[in-house]
Amino acid sequence: MDNVLSFKRGRLPLLISMPHPGILLTPVVEAGLVEEAKERPDTDWHIPLLYDFAAELGASTLEACYSRYVIDLNRPEDDAPLYASATTGLYPAVLFDGEPLFRAGMQPSAEERARYLEEIWRPYHQTLADELARLKAEFGYALLFDAHSIRSCVPRLFEGLLPDFNLGTNAGASCDPQLSERLLAVCAKAKDYSHVLNGRFKGGHITRHYGQPEQQVHAVQLELAQCTYMEEQLPFDYRQDLAEPTQEVLRDLLEAMLAWGRERYGR
């Protein structure tokens, strides 16, 4: 498959992973989707644009191009559940609201899905693993920031309104606790935004699998409420007036990660 991912190498020991902004569909998936799903409502809309300062900052970026409706890059390849509560799998069968994703009998075949695993999931994770290994070899450590967003109200997945900034570190297992404290301090200073650490979103497969602080690889997931930078309903427009102040907090978070790394490792 073409256009599976977009990768840009930076100059600092930070990789920003964006597994869910993609909107490309395979012909089989597109033919089978229910009408509502064709608008891709569960996409992490505009995430690459929101993090467009990454190159100036010096971070590497990895962006998925295919929709999570084809295959979810933030799920393990064995599709083991990540949460005890409602969620979606490696090959999603329902929308976030619980409605079926595909028309009856129109789901991709097992053979088709095996191709998605080989040609979409594996290249993304190989690129991610390779870049983390390169950063660790060059700097002695690597920082991974897994960037996500979601509608602020999804009753099937969580009660009430989601906090604006949802940091996840796999209950403290994916990064040094001092790094978590540094990021929480940044969020606390952002008085116009709410935040939580390891709330409903503790980190998906990417954070849990690659975050190995004992091996000097520190991973943090951010699930950002979409109301902080866009219209949450069709046509899902990017709101520059909302996005600019949100970007300031995002930049502060990433700069805090880098500063912590320099202090901890001396480079």
Rank of each mutant, 00 (worst) to 15 (best):
I206D: 04
L197V: 09
H218E: 13
R208F: 02
D130T: 12
S109P: 05
Q221D: 10
T246K: 03
L143D: 10
K202Q: 14
E138Y: 11
N198T: 05
R113P: 01
P177V: 04
Q221K: 00
K202V: 11
A219C: 05
Q226F: 03
C175N: 07
Y210K: 01
E159D: 15
N166S: 13
N166Q: 12
R151A: 14
Y124N: 05
A171Q: 15
A225N: 14
C175R: 02
E119Q: 13
A188P: 04
N170R: 10
E138C: 07
Q107L: 08
P108K: 06
L162D: 11
I206R: 03
Y141C: 02
A190F: 07
Y193E: 03
L197H: 12
E112W: 07
L135R: 07
L144W: 08
D164P: 04
H148A: 05
S174D: 06
V220W: 02
G160P: 09
C153I: 11
A171S: 15
T169P: 00
P235L: 02
C187H: 06
R122H: 15
T228F: 07
A129W: 03
S109D: 13
S149F: 06
A137F: 09
I150T: 09
Q240R: 09
E223M: 04
F158P: 00
G204F: 10
L144A: 11
Q240I: 05
